[in-house]
Computed example of a mutant assay.
Amino acid sequence: MINLAATPGSLLRVIGFLIAWAGCWLPIAIPLFVARDQSKTLAAQKLPLLASLYLIAPIVLWKVSQITNRNFLDYGVVWNFAILRSLGEGLAIAVLSIAILFAIQTLLGWVNWQQISPKQIMSVVLPTLVLALWVSATEELIFRGFMLTQMQQDYPLWLAAIISSGIFAGLHLVWEQRETVPQLPGLWLMGMVLVLARVIDNGSLGLAWGLHSGWVWAIASIDTTQVLAYTQKVPDWITGKHNKPLAGILGIILLMATAGLLLVMGNW
């Protein structure tokens, strides 16, 4: 059995938040799950479930923060021009990194681009940007904001980063197991890079939010428009299993290169 008395208080608070979050979400999620279209996969219909989960997250976190005598400012949410500037920088870095990643694969003949109309592109890109900003803001508030800050009360930064990034990666299994398992190392490393972004940004979530949003926006837009097709000239462990960049060595290199750039930006 788990000895609660020996469990660090920060970890108990994180577990308590996750239980409260799930407890508030399940009464909404269960009817949505029951009413889903049985002819479609759960992954294809996850948007209503995800939307309901992420809508209640800030409310639950606000109540937990009241109990723990914290506020969103402690978690890196600083509403000023600086956070918007950092958001923009993060978006630019993330989108540029994805562009470089696929430009290299294109030159090597590992991917082909399909021709689609500008109208088709715009119908996907703009809504996807809004969704990416919202989802990423919520996840950064929870994982690099609340969880990291809480765990730093009992653990050094490096260990708090490892644990919070592990939780971040593991919770992605809620939606898709088959495609997510190969991405777990990449998702964990992504969490670590986003922790570094918060540190470089003097505790603000702006840069991490921008990076996260940019990556989600770029990859989701490519997936939705189906503008890109892999040629299968190299094994998928290089380009990404199930066509997911984080499940391949190139995605790992991209994250490591981003970490290097962040260290340069922070003059480390």
Rank of each mutant, 00 (worst) to 15 (best):
P8T: 10
W209E: 08
D154Q: 08
G240P: 09
A6I: 07
T224W: 00
I219H: 04
P48A: 14
D154L: 10
V181M: 11
G248C: 07
S117A: 15
N80D: 15
G191M: 04
Q115V: 13
I238F: 05
M192Q: 14
I163F: 10
R198E: 03
S221M: 05
G23R: 00
W110E: 03
V95A: 07
A44N: 07
L42V: 15
I142N: 02
A82Y: 09
W175V: 15
I116D: 06
L184V: 12
W237N: 04
W62E: 13
L148Y: 08
V227M: 09
A43K: 07
I121N: 06
L4K: 07
T7Y: 00
F102K: 01
L91V: 00
V95E: 07
A20G: 11
I142H: 00
N112F: 04
N80S: 05
M147Q: 06
A43T: 11
G191T: 05
G251F: 06
L261W: 10
D201V: 09
F72Q: 12
T231F: 02
L87C: 05
R198P: 04
W134T: 14
Q66D: 15
G186A: 15
R13A: 13
I28N: 05
Q66H: 13
M265G: 10
I30P: 04
L12G: 08
W110A: 01
S164R: 09
V264M: 09
V216D: 02
L228H: 03
L42K: 11
I30L: 15
F72R: 13
Q105F: 02
A103Y: 04
L196W: 08
L61K: 04
K233C: 03
L11Q: 08
A29Q: 02
Q152F: 00
L129Q: 09
V181H: 03
N202A: 09
D37H: 10
A22T: 12
V111Y: 02
G251Y: 02
T224S: 11
W62T: 14
L189Y: 05
D223E: 09
G16V: 08
L187Q: 03
P48D: 13
L26D: 06
T258A: 14
